[in-house]
Amino acid sequence: MSTIVTEKEIQQLQLTANTIRQTIIRMLMDAGAGHTAGPLGMADIFTALYFHELKHDPKNPSWSERDRVILSNGHICPVRYAAMYHAGYQIQKEELSTFRKIDSRLEGHPAFHRLPGVETSSGPLGEGLSEACGFAFAAKMDHKPHHIWCLASDGEHAEGMTWEAVMLAAKYKLDNLCVIIDRNYIQIDGFTEDVMPLDLGVSLADKYKAFGWNVLEIGGHDFADILGAFEKAKSAKGKPTCIVARTTPGKGVDFMENNYKWHGVPPNKTQAEEALAQLARIEDALRRE
């Protein structure tokens, strides 16, 4: 997998992801509300998308040839907003501190009509994969080569609607569609395997296989792994691809990692300062490499 990306490129992606994590912490602290664990956990995958994989034009977010990113679990939108900001989308630095506040384009859950570059409005869980199927059908009908990347949480796989879409995508061989599942094993009420187990009987990955999908299991913080999986997803024929990405919720901040209590709360000022200090130390270490 190292053939598609050099060590130096990986180091740069790691630094970008670190910057995005710091932005996320600041946004959440300023908002005084929002979700922390998921955005930190998905920072590497968003970085891999927005800074390596996507065919996109930040200055022209409605460019018809762009790859589509459908965020199903809308509550992790701070990571999307931060990634878009750092990738050069038309979001001003001071706008980041308006997240969740009145008149802001940075809604608590993404609003399609307010912020160009957000493909769908989302928030209620389990709906994104169905919409992504609609995007994939449209691309097939129009013979367009762009790819549809749907980002979903593990917890939202308790929603029946998701499995309706899983069946549909396999039936119609939507190989221009890839769902990336943030397998962080937490949700708001606790650990996924306690709230509603997804690995019971067979693992979540094997469930997708049984439904006729091309399935890849990766480490969600390993850029070589992530980018390699993207390549495999794009070259798959006749089947949609599911990437089960094992992530650490709260990644990069030791008192947040793997603690489900950080699913739906923001850091206060003291916690944010400590989180930023930890992330800065990681940044320094990366730069010294």
Binding site: E127, S130, C133, A165
Partner: peptide, 11 residues
Amino acid sequence: NLIGVCAGLAY
């Protein structure tokens, strides 16, 4: 799912 697919197509 019918609704979500319709939404994706309309987007």
